[in-house]
Write a protein that binds this DNA or RNA. Sequence first.
DNA 1: TATTTTGTATACAGATCTGTATATAACTTC
DNA 2: GAAGTTATATACAGATCTGTATACAAAATA
Lengths: 194, 194
Amino acid sequence: MKAQLSKLSKRDQLIQTAVKLFAKNGIHATGVDSIVEQSGVTKKTLYAHFRTKEELVLAVLRHYDGLARNEFMRKVERRATTPRARLLAIFDFAQHWFQQHNFYGCLFVNTIGEYSGKDTPIRQICKEYKKLVKDYIHSLCQQAGVKNPQGLAEELALLLEGATVTAQVSQNPKSAQIAKRAAKALIDKALPPR
Amino acid sequence: MKAQLSKLSKRDQLIQTAVKLFAKNGIHATGVDSIVEQSGVTKKTLYAHFRTKEELVLAVLRHYDGLARNEFMRKVERRATTPRARLLAIFDFAQHWFQQHNFYGCLFVNTIGEYSGKDTPIRQICKEYKKLVKDYIHSLCQQAGVKNPQGLAEELALLLEGATVTAQVSQNPKSAQIAKRAAKALIDKALPPR
DNA sequence: TATTTTGTATACAGATCTGTATATAACTTC
DNA sequence: GAAGTTATATACAGATCTGTATACAAAATA
């Protein structure tokens, strides 16, 4: 059951395999043995690149952080041109995301859920990811000329978060439309359409 | 390190201890040995009441479902009298919840995160909980005389969900205030204050 | 008071977990 | 082409996991 990862470095094969397994089954439920088996890389090699499983987890989160934020911004900007339309396009992107067959909610949220009590570097990365997403929304609000861009960005980020969790739990992607409807009302209030 | 659970049945001692450990450390990371140790109940007794760990998990979720929803509704109704004010009081309750020292996010969301890929009865309970919370919000919307109570309930439930996750990840309870601000705008739109 | 239930205490089986050790093959690079 | 790097294959150590077995004590019930 090896994947087609021949062109990648061993390190990347491990990370990409681990991302999939962590997202689908959770971190504690995913043993390094299954990562080794499905990546087609030896355990010895894994521990040559990462000193512990936790270091692999960190690498996976950092990898996914860059990947996910990049795709988020790219797709939002492709779907609309004006800042205002882009704020709404966030939720069209979300709906598309929720419909992916391998959508298992936000990896960072799921990870925090497994490390609620502990205070490891893992938590820091998850926290940072959410901050950067909000910063991006904030920049769109600024570009749109909103009076209180921070306030609107916080509200829209909350809606996106809620829609994501709801889609994950209820297994229904329509939460994106609900969030979009609410977002439109909040945007219209913060920036009356002329 | 036994807790003071003398008045409870062995079954309840196990459930209450398990709730705490699952919430704090996650389910897969919590071994039955630690539940046994901290509850002051023998492993033999645990397996007399629950055939497997998964059955204990189910009992814990069902127990917490009743407990949490009951407290949610009770506290919301104590904080305000009119349906409209109660819709807003949801977020005051949330802020208070987020500030608890043992707040580790929503147990059901964290649980789903650990069972994303599988389709066990566990998922069903989490799904049902979210539905019942939304139904309660829906009933408040109806009582308030909102034209589209379903629509507003969906939006407010999304805000509550987003605020909860955000408070958990960013470890900052102010997300409740943000959600309340957004909720107020949405409520005012759906039910203009006279 | 005899019996059944319910619990404790503890050890164990078998699987799985993280991480390491050993020995060997392939691929760079000088 | 020799040296050094980077893999593979595989076995193992030691801990921890779920679940069971054995032997005994306490408490309720008949």
